Structure formats: structure tokens, C-alpha cells
Amino acid sequence: MFFVRQNSVRWLLAILLSCVALLAARPAAAQGGGYFQPQQFSSNANSPDFMPASLLQDPLPAPGPTTLPDTQVNGQTPQVNGQPQQFFDMDEYLDSHPDFVAGGEQWDWVLLPTSIIYRSYLAGAKESRYGAQIIHETDHYALWDATLGTRVGLLRYGNQSVFNPEGFQIDAEGSAQVRLDIRNNVDVQAVDFRGGVPLTYGIGPHRFKFGYYHLSSHLGDEFLLKNPTYNRLNFARDVLISGYSYFWTEKLRFYGEVGWAFYTDVTEPWELQFGVDWAPQKPTGFRGEPFFAVNVHLREELNFSGNFTAQIGWAWVGNQNAHMLRMGLHYFNGGSSEFSFYRENEQQIGVGVWYDF
């Protein structure tokens, strides 16, 4: 009897221990993805009873086919599973269109943009910039031609890119272009004043310009005192201009421009200029890159002859803006670049430094 009771107690203890073990195992099974009793958990990740939702369900299978089709490209005609497919070489297109931005940029209004859509002609003698060149001129020996000016963006409707600007933009430009006679106490011989407002548009490699500028020429006081019999000319013009430039590559630009003056004094209405610029357009770092520029400027008052300018040297483009600093050799041949002496023919050879906006 005692043996039976003792065995019964042993069986009862075994059953109780099994129940306790089962109850203890249920929360662990829930955390392993098994049975789970509903329970309230805190949404705070730092709380001890927080449980991520990813632990409450099995992971979903990855979408899409488990195997990829066999794709072969032979020349320009690719095949997928043996069937010829239409093919577009995006890499080749992007290489041939360096100004294209994949996905594009949304256009919006930009007040006082930091870059210029239609940049100044690098070898243009009458462009507004900072610059100076020491030249040897056939009749005057050493001269110092300097340009003190700027060109800034006022308003743009387009993208906000600094080095690849696109859209419509209004600029303002102005400069004083002065000539100093180094041999004669650095006297001011003459100065041309220019100011204008160009409206420009750019998309991809194309750039368009329409605008207005005023230019007037004045002889220096020191020059008139030393040459009292010199015939002073009131050379002035108010001009409407239209220009187009095309980037054949990222660095190579061709351009042409025509101007018609609705007001003239001494000068005649029509002018034409064209040329080539080859220069970096993106940041160069301290090492810089070479540049080359040619400009031809024809004017009606010279019977549509004019002047030829060539420059070659080294250029740097900044990291924060598209401004360009250049240093190099300068050559000019034709009607004087100071329009107070427009009837005089000059040949200039020298060195210069130029800062373009």
C-alpha cells in the first residue's frame, strides 16, 4: 500500500513538473515565431517589453523571377533569350552630350544666380571682365590695356546648377576699358565705357543671347594736354545684339553675334563677331588646364573690316563658382581696340591676365 502511494506521489510530482516546464516554454516559443498569446507591448524601442514587428511574422519571399534571362549583346543589336531587341547605348549618348543631366533638374526662379548661362567671349576685346595686358604696339611701344568690369546674373528661371546652368536669365554687365601709356608717365590715353543688359537662354549645348549695350569712348586728360590739336571724337553707340553659341564638346565652343545700333555718333550701325573658345568649364583645382581663344570683330565704320584677336595660355576654374582666371599670350591685329583711335591700325603682342565671370 505504501509502495502504491509512493509511486502515485512520484507520478503526481512528474506531472506537475511537466506542466511548469510547459508554461515556462510558452513565451520562448512565441519569440521564436511559434504560438503567441495576444499581449500589449510598448511602442518605445527603449522599453524592456518592446518587440519589433519583424519578429511577429515570417519574412516574405523576394519578388521577381528566380532566374534572369540570358542576355547577349552583339555589336549594336542585343538579344534576350535569342530574340533581337531594340537597343539604346546610354553610355555613348552621355559621352557625346556632356551637358546632359540624367533625370534633369526641376526649373524654378533663382534670384541673383552665381553663374552665367551665356558666357563672355574669351578673346573678345570689348567684353566686360577684369583683365590687363602689357603689349608692344608698333607705333606706341609699351602700352597697358586694362579692363575693370564685371558681369552678374540678376534673375533666372531654370535650374540651380553652377557649372551646367540652363534656363532663362537676365544679366547685367559693365566695364571701363582704359589704355595707359607706360613710357609717358603711365598717362591715360583713352577709356571706353560699356554697360548692358543681356537676356540669355541655355539648354543642353545651345546658348542664345539677346540684349542691349551702350558704349562711349573718351580721350584722357593727359593725352589732350599733350596733343591739343588732336581731333576729339564723340564715339558712341546704343546697340541691340543677338548671339548664339554651341558647345561642340564640353570645352570647345563656337559662337557668332550680330549687333545693330539704333543710335550712333561717329560710328555706323552694324557689327559682326564670331570665334572659337577652347577652355575648361568645370573646376580645375590648382593645376589648371590650357586654353585657346580666337575672336574676329567686323564693323561697318571700317567697311566691314575690323580686328583679329588670339590668346593662348593656362586657365583655372574655381570650385565654388564658374569664374575663370586666365594667364597667357595675347595677339591683336586690326582697328584699334580703343575706339577713340578707331581709324588707326594696330598690331599688339604681349602677355595678359584675365578674370571672367
Rank of each mutant, 00 (worst) to 15 (best):
G243H: 02
T229R: 12
D181R: 09
P205A: 10
H218S: 09
L224Y: 07
S216G: 14
N227H: 15
Y263P: 00
V258P: 00
V258L: 03
L252T: 13
R194S: 04
L240Q: 07
V266G: 01
Y244E: 01
D181E: 12
D192P: 12
V186W: 14
L180Y: 15
G204T: 02
T264Q: 12
L252Q: 06
Y213K: 02
D265P: 02
T229W: 09
V197M: 14
T229V: 11
Y201T: 02
V188M: 10
W248E: 07
E257F: 00
T264D: 13
E222W: 06
N185W: 08
N227P: 10
G220P: 05
T249K: 07
Y263D: 13
R237G: 04
P228Q: 13
F223V: 09
V258A: 01
E222M: 07
F254Q: 05
N234R: 13
V191R: 03
F235S: 00
E268K: 08
L233C: 04
K226L: 12
G256S: 02
S245Y: 00
D181Y: 08
G211P: 04
F262D: 09
V191W: 02
Y255A: 03
K251S: 11
V239N: 08
N227V: 10
E268M: 05
G204F: 00
E222V: 07
G211R: 03
L199G: 04
G202E: 04
E250A: 14
